[in-house]
Simulated scan of single mutants.
Amino acid sequence: MRDQNFASSRRRFDDDDPNFLKRLSHDFDTAWDSSDDPSGDEQYSSWDTPGVLHGPEPRPDWVVTELSARDTELGVLKTGKEADVHLVERAVPDGPRTLLAAKRYRAAEHRMFHRDSGYLEGRRVRESRVTRAMESRTAFGREALAGQWAAAEFGALGQLWALGVSVPYPVQLLGTEVMLEFVGAPDGTAAPRLAQTRPSRAELESLWWQLVDGLRVLARAGLAHGDLSPYNLLVDGERLVFIDLPQIVDVVINPNGAEFLARDVANVARWFTGKGFPVDPEPLVVELLHDAGIR
């Protein structure tokens, strides 16, 4: 059971701005069961759809791969400027079932590419015409960008999962939809963001060192989260989980890589210090840059 020092009320997954929230369309106060709501939006699982990419192996035991499985929409967990996150039940009739978070990047006409330029430095696609279209923000280019954000997040999660970083397992990628492990309770209650928690001193210390360990693995792989903050970290019981990784930065290739890494550390160090666990970000930044091999 989750420690009562952490927020016990229902939280939404990966919220970055409360002004963009929608309420869930189902009540999860009791254990969820898709059979309780026959009107739910149910369709066959997209696991075997042509073009779908699957997460790294070995897969966790809870991943449902049976072709007879059904996907049922259970509600909106988060709406944002660039993607919406939906709660989906994937279940085999009279068989295994699991909850997933389906992150769906917005269509071109509804997206706000307010962060593209800095993060996309050093990223290229195979066809030069696609690169040009993305740079000029044509309709086709914006669609390509949406797909690139989804693919970047799916690839980053798969890489970090394989390296042992605490991230949601990436179940599958289909177009601009990334299907992820749902981080939370079986009743559909999402794990709170770090910013929503009120941890004790001992819990702060544990969470900080979990964070440092994760950042070290990222740096040794030549990566930085790129948008790290207390709003892009979940607290699942005693476990810290990194989320929201479409903007992941290659700190070696990206000319602003060192600045992104330093900003990540400063953002989270400021929060921990404000909660009564003072940390100096500078020594950690120096260590991470050294681990990344750029200083």
Rank of each mutant, 00 (worst) to 15 (best):
E143K: 04
G147Q: 02
Q148L: 13
G147H: 06
A146P: 01
G164H: 10
V167N: 11
W149P: 02
A133G: 09
A144N: 00
A162M: 15
V171L: 06
G158D: 10
M179S: 15
P168M: 01
S166L: 11
A152M: 08
L145R: 12
A152P: 02
V183S: 06
D187L: 01
V171R: 09
V178L: 11
A133C: 11
R132A: 14
P168V: 04
E153D: 01
E177F: 03
E181S: 04
A144D: 05
L174A: 13
G155V: 10
M179I: 15
M179F: 12
V167Q: 06
A146S: 13
L163V: 07
Q172A: 13
V171Y: 05
M134K: 09
L180D: 04
G155I: 15
W149H: 15
V171C: 12
A144H: 07
G147L: 02
M179Y: 09
A150Q: 00
E143A: 06
E153Y: 02
L163A: 14
A146I: 13
G175C: 05
T176N: 14
R142V: 12
A152R: 07
A156L: 06
A139Y: 00
L173K: 13
F182S: 03
E153K: 03
L163R: 10
W149L: 15
R142C: 03
E153R: 09
R142G: 00
E143F: 02
